Amino acid sequence: MRTGKRELQRLIAYEAARILTELRSDNVTYACQKAAAKYGITKRQFLPTREEVESALREQQRLVRGERQTDTLRTLRLSALNAMQALIQFNPKLVGAVFDGTADSNSCVKLHLFADTPEDLLFTLSDLHIPWQEKQHRLQFSDGRKESVPCFIFNADGVGFELVVLPAKNPRNHPLDPLDNQPIQGASIKQLQQLVDTPG
């Protein structure tokens, strides 16, 4: 019996969600590719959307973790909100699992910040007495350019943070999601406050 495209996408989405849970990862692109390989799928058109994988992951988390999942997500979002308020001059945007609601206790808070130079952020982190480590994060942008951008990592009160520094001079040149080549979605301070204030 042939499996239709929609059914394949659903199967891959649920398998990708299982992989993300098993690996304690939030790399949706990798999980989709690994899940697709299990079903012998190589064409991008058969991959589920990010929203479908996130929906499958949230469903699994509700079944397995119940209320603990809701409490963990709220705690992480409050930590994100505090950090964003401390870094408000960089127009922070919350992205990743804490934004989309699939975060668990192993997730870190991922922020996109906009600065003229990475040093601007480093001065602020120093003023806040935050020790950090630096790595490079490769992104593709909406103008077609691929570039490695600085990412600063630290822990605060048991929560991991990843701060990706993007150029302030061209904020409309959005970084793209590698799964669907669409602009990475996120929340401003105001939008995150609304998420925190909304039960469930």
Results as ranks from 00 to 15, higher is better:
N27L: 12
Q60Y: 02
K34Q: 15
G40Y: 07
E54Q: 13
L8K: 07
Q140E: 11
N170P: 04
N155W: 12
I41H: 02
G96A: 12
P175D: 03
R68C: 07
P92C: 09
L87W: 00
L47K: 03
V165G: 00
R6V: 15
R50E: 04
A36K: 08
P92Y: 07
A103T: 14
F152E: 12
N27I: 03
R58S: 15
A97E: 03
N106D: 13
W132F: 14
N27T: 14
D100H: 09
P167K: 01
E147V: 12
I153A: 10
D104Q: 11
D100T: 05
G40C: 04
G96H: 06
A168Y: 11
D177A: 12
V149T: 01
K190D: 08
D127N: 14
A13V: 07
L57M: 09
A83Q: 08
S79R: 06
S126E: 08
R65W: 02
F46T: 08
H137C: 11
F99D: 11
I184S: 12
S79M: 05
Q9S: 04
Q133V: 09
T21E: 13
Q136M: 14
A13R: 10
T102M: 03
Q33A: 10
C151V: 04
S79I: 02
Q185G: 15
Q193C: 12
A86H: 01
N155A: 10
R10M: 06
L166A: 04
Q33G: 10
L163D: 00
S55H: 02
F123V: 11
F152W: 08
L63G: 06
L73D: 07
G144A: 06
F161M: 06
S126F: 02
D26S: 13
T198R: 03
A83Y: 01
V164A: 00
K135W: 06
D157N: 09
P167L: 04
N173C: 07
T117G: 01
N27Q: 11
L63E: 12
Q33D: 13
E147S: 15
R145W: 10
R2H: 05
L87S: 03
Q9W: 10
V159E: 09
E54M: 15
K5Y: 10
L73T: 11
R50V: 08
A13Y: 02
F46A: 02
K190H: 14
Q45G: 02
M1D: 05
K38R: 14
R65C: 08
V165P: 00
S105R: 07
F161D: 07
L47V: 09
Q9D: 10
P150V: 11
I12R: 05
Q61W: 01
G96D: 04
G101D: 12
V196W: 00
N27G: 03
S148H: 04
Y30N: 02
